[in-house]
Design a protein around this nucleic acid. Structure first.
Lengths: 414, 414
DNA sequence: GGTATTTTTTTCGGCGTCCGCAATAAATAA
DNA sequence: TTATTTATTGCGGACGCCGAAAAAAATACC
């Protein structure tokens, strides 16, 4: 069972708390930190003195010119950008992108690459990933602190421990242990994250007001993915990254899904499904790849006039609505972010979606369920990976005596 | 955000740890506790000395006659039954049952009552509950420590904070704040728990080997309910008790459900649905109450010969299978316990269930998903309530200076 | 311009908790 | 009877947090 708290863990945890408060709040003063953590001023003072001395935090003189308030002005504390750096790798369909981010969260270098992920053999795919990382790591122009962590994001399914890509739509290859491969090659702790989970993490940082304790990020793209945050923590399956919303069953025995099964939500709401339906192609036809431009054209046509295109979006909305209804039956309604190219066509999807959801148990307060859209998923995934890696570093730097969490664990610290 | 750890919380938490270790392990020695908690022997020694001195624990001389081992024999620590007591109230269809349980978990008094829950007015229903509790609390024969906590269990939906019965199939009444009512009447902290959640809690205590970190308890009765444990903790919705598995959508626009909507899993697998189907009654017909005896007769007939009865169970299995498939798409497969009268007919349900699940994303390893059955739900619910109440007491007795958690919070400590 | 006021941050003494190690206790093996 | 093994307790030391007081750094007021 859960382990007791040793006396020395105390300082470690409270250091974590302070760092996390600074990362969250921007430039909080010691007094603010004391307020949010509930620790005494003396403790915060002691801990932040340590952290400054170790080069993790720094006092930011650059506060507003006039404090306007009486009394000694607060001294803002900031993360020292040079304390460390992290590297993100995002692998998506025909596209590989890497970024180096300093400890304060600023991107200091990037590189992007087109490649033919669908047909690349295993060695080549891995090789390209390693090569691009190596180039960024050994860039002589970079004078940022040493890279302390790598987070890789990928479309598809990863394991619970964030080590292995189990399956991905971008390649026929399966079970690639990217985390181990990266760790072995560069000697830097690495994790392999699911794209939609990273979207959720990013949303939580971008708009903590709206995306706080419970919310859902749904990727409407070629496939349908989901990142789920419940009670403030990223939700993952017991074995895999989980949250395979797209493969909940909408109609038993129904349309053919990319996964080979029938009736999944995705088989009605994925890009290929909308396309198939709009073109009058049989529901039994194998999924085909549809470009983003084609999808945008389809949406435009659907907006222009009633017809099979509009009907296709309607059916997609219906599938998503019943799927969300079932999901809400399990977890209760929560704010939803629709991300991806089809999120730009959410106006076509929403009416049928709301109508469907109203017919479900979760739709009792259908109107109160709010949707937000974000057509571009890649920046979100990158940000999510960056924050994920940085929070890991937060936990490692301050925990020099902590458990041997050499990245083998992958706990949720969302 | 999460609050810092004050220095004085440390002892409180570690005391909790020790108590919890004793409750879990039965009669562990100090050495064993030190091993499971990771705390040092001296610390465990000090804490258990305190707890014994306070009458919470006691040294159990009644260890096995011969330890067979060399060295000083271990002294088992046990919960002192007289340290406190808890009271459970379980309200189900036409049935009210109360039990008093000592701190060691033994039932010391019970009372059960038949009543007509479906037609009772609000005041009367509440009145009966209060009356039966009052009788047990003031029983002069009882010389157990004072009752420190009440846990009430009910079929239906409760709120996340375990305070209010929001809706229940056993009564047309809604939104009864039982926890507040009990607290106000008796001045004892109380919670209002969902029946299926309590089933899950009980299973975790009964068979921690099988039901440990991730598992599902499904109630197959008049309605279909679920208790879900994920990562060792009871899973609840964001607003309600959640886990309304029975109201996930099986067939959009399909059979009429008791909840008034169409196509829910329950509308195919609830007792009334199986009955309706077996009797050739329309799927649009209003649900009727079916007795347990009738259901057993139906199952017997279905076993005897192929016919509409067998087909009804097959369809129930199919609905449950697709529902579980969708659930497994979200959380990955986990062991399942089927509880309730129709669990006794699981042989009739299983084939279609497995066939359906194999067609879903969650069913990839369909064979490896294991089911266990338990026809009688009431004892499980009672046990779950008892353990829930006792673990609350565990947290209150040792935490005399803790936050004001006077039962207002209802955190998951599954 | 000098002093009072306000607010933030640091310092210091005290208390409580945990750990390691040594001592003690209680059994079996020789 | 003595040696050995294992469990538990006692003691000294280190560490972390808190509260109160002091110090620091600004504005407000006269």
């Amino acid at each position: 069972m859960s382990v007791g708290i040793r006396h020395d863990d105390l300082r470690r945890r409270n250091r974590a708390m302070v760092i996390s408060a600074v990362r969250r709040a921007g430039q909080p003063s010691r007094t603010e930190i004391a307020a949010t953590t509930g620790l005494s001023h003396s403790t915060i003072s002691a801990i932040s003195a340590d952290l400054i001395q170790e080069g993790i935090l720094s006092e930011s003189k650059a506060t507003e010119p006039t404090a306007l308030k009486r009394g000694r002005p607060q001294i803002g504390l900031a993360l020292n950008p040079e304390a460390a750096a992290v590297l993100t790798v995002v692998l998506s369909l025909n596209f590989l992108s890497v970024a180096v981010i300093d400890y304060a969260g600023q991107v200091v270098a990037e590189e992007q690459l087109r490649l033919d992920t669908l047909v690349m053999p295993r060695d080549e795919l891995i090789g390209e990933c390693l090569a691009i990382v190596r180039r960024r790591l050994h860039d002589p122009d970079l004078d940022v602190g040493s890279v302390a962590r790598i987070a890789m994001g990928i479309q598809g399914i990863t394991d619970t421990h964030s080590r292995v890509m189990l399956w991905s739509p971008i390649t026929p290859l399966t079970d690639i242990p990217f985390a181990d491969i990266l760790e072995k090659e560069f000697g830097i702790p690495a994790t392999m994250e699911n794209d939609c989970n990273m979207m959720a993490v990013a949303l939580q940082w971008r708009d903590p007001e709206r995306y706080r304790d419970d919310f859902i990020a749904i990727l409407l793209s070629h496939g349908i993915g989901m990142g789920l945050v419940l009670k403030g923590a990223l939700f993952t399956g017991t074995h895999s990254s989980g949250g395979e919303f797209g493969h909940m069953i909408h109609r038993p025995g129904g349309a053919l899904c990319r996964c080979g099964r029938r009736g999944c939500v995705e088989a009605y709401a994925g890009n290929y499904a909308i396309w198939r339906s709009a073109m009058g192609i049989s529901e039994d036809a194998a999924p085909t790849d549809v470009g983003d431009a084609d999808m945008r054209a389809l949406a435009a046509k659907a907006r222009q006039q009633d017809g099979p295109e509009r009907e296709a979006y309607r059916r997609a909305g219906e599938a998503l609505g019943f799927g969300l209804g079932s999901l809400f039956a399990l977890i209760d309604p929560a704010p939803v972010a629709m991300v991806g190219v089809s999120a730009a066509a959410f106006d076509l999807i929403e009416p049928a979606l709301r109508e469907a959801i109203a017919q479900t148990a979760g739709g009792q307060h259908s109107e109160s369920i709010s949707f937000d859209t974000e057509p571009n998923e890649l920046p979100l995934i990158r940000e999510g990976c960056a924050m994920r890696a940085l929070t890991f570093v937060d936990q490692e730097i301050f925990a020099p005596g902590g458990q041997a969490r050499t990245g083998t664990v992958g706990k949720n610290v969302a």
